[in-house]
Design a protein around this nucleic acid. Structure first.
Lengths: 260, 260
DNA sequence: CGCTAGATTGATGGAGATCAAATCTTGTGG
DNA sequence: CCACAAGATTTGATCTCCATCAATCTAGCG
């Protein structure tokens, strides 16, 4: 998602580019251990607590010292893998999928640059879901035991981790509300507005963006079938709320969408 | 729930009672500052990490030094209240309810003795939902800032809080799966088996228990109407999977229920 | 011991699932 | 760089599960 949006940002501001590129694309796919630096990362406002000192950033950079590239369709981790690390997305996007014994599958979330993956693995010491890349992506690897050690004497970081986990609980609560009480139309509207808000928070257009997930994945996230998702997109188009052309979406009337 | 179950346990084992009473019922409703002691609490296996030393328990007892009684139907806290503390249930049970601007209401969970409330308040510094007592209940008050301080130099406790929060994320994931993919029949079966498992973990009967919530509250938790909940109870009764008489439920065939 | 909130059961309708078919993307290999 | 196959999307027709409306019935509580 941010790859498309970043090139778009470059077109909007031809010179000099005002938007800091989200990440340095590894030169080769084999690059696994370049040196990420939280202190200079464009996403630090999203994944780090505010107001860290130079010294504190240095300690973090010592822990978060490797990245990993994942090809579209590949898994960053799978359910039941041993839990070692959490991950923040530098570039790209993911879906997290839980699979019931009987084969029922459900997408529990879509994550984009700046979001964190793997917090659900802490409880059992093993991953609880599959994390699948929706496009070629890069993540920072954060070994959790080392992070815990850092948190023990870095109060802002300690509090930040609690906040991140708590935010995830809140996000899931509102997703339960969506799944438990909303009509298909309201769910799709809510989904588009949520994505829009998150892109905006990352400096991208809130009005137009590329969906990296299929209608089926959206449906699986929203608790409905892909045909229903498609019908809702068409309905919004007829009502001039949204212009959708395949995976490109432009929100024409955000207030109208919110009133649905 | 545990009040009923505890008196039941007393009947089952007339003398000497083998089941440790879950809590000391406060003598008067006004009792707000008796001295809870984690070290001797029957629920410590559920709310505390294993293997703490006497010294470590003493430090916790210094932080968790007050309780609060909440009458049936009253709120422990409401959405938008300032977040100060988290709570563990000593006795009784609660529901947590999120309310959308437009009035849509959804029950995000039912909590019983040993469960923790309020973790979702950390992220925004204010409560995210209403916590309503389903019966007269007692909670331990854990001031969060003090807990954070303790966690900074008590590694097992630090890890335990991360685990608790992560467990909540996992619990909500599986509730999303339920809401997103299961039929009404499967949701009710899943709900009963989950309650059964939790009662069992607390030393109560897994087969027979009292529901403290109404059919409407169950429906609101499972994303269906109260009539549908009632019909599913009747259906299970016809199929000899469950015997339900109002709020008393006896699971007759747990395997059958799991196969639904 | 009577009242009222909660629970059950039946009849009917509608939102969304399912099945089907045509059209459109996309990415992969030549 | 282009063609083509596999997958994704759209749209229509029909069916089903659950919501809704309605009428008792029950039990817990003051």
């Amino acid at each position: 998602m941010q790859v498309a949006a970043a090139s778009q940002a470059r077109h909007d501001a031809p010179r000099p580019p005002r938007v800091v590129p989200i990440h340095i694309v590894p030169r080769t796919a084999a690059t696994r251990h370049d040196l990420p630096r939280c202190s200079t990362c464009a996403m630090r406002a999203i994944c780090m607590p505010p107001g860290l000192t130079t010294d504190q950033f240095a300690r973090l950079d010592a822990v978060i010292c490797s990245t990993r590239s994942i090809k579209r369709g590949d898994a960053l981790y799978r359910a039941a893998d041993a839990f070692q690390s959490i991950y923040t997305i530098r570039a790209g996007s993911f879906k997290t999928v839980v699979i019931h014994r009987d084969g029922r599958e459900h997408v529990t979330g879509f994550q984009i640059a700046g979001d964190t993956l793997g917090l659900d693995g802490i409880s059992a010491g093993k991953q609880n879901c599959d994390a699948i890349a929706l496009e070629d992506s890069v993540v920072c690897i954060i070994p959790f035991a080392q992070l815990e050690a850092v948190c023990r004497d870095m109060k802002p970081m300690q509090h930040h981790i609690y906040q991140m986990m708590s935010s995830e609980i809140v996000r899931e609560s509102s997703q339960m509300l969506l799944l438990g009480t909303m009509t298909a139309e309201q769910r799709v509207a809510s989904f588009l507005l949520n994505l829009s808000k998150r892109f905006k928070a990352r400096g991208f257009s809130a009005a137009e963006f590329h969906l990296r997930m299929t209608r089926e994945e959206i449906g699986c996230f929203l608790g409905m079938k892909l045909e229903t998702v498609s019908r809702m997109f068409s309905k919004f188009q007829r009502e001039r709320l949204v212009h959708a052309n395949g995976k490109t979406v432009r929100i024409e009337d955000a207030e109208g969408l919110a009133r649905v």
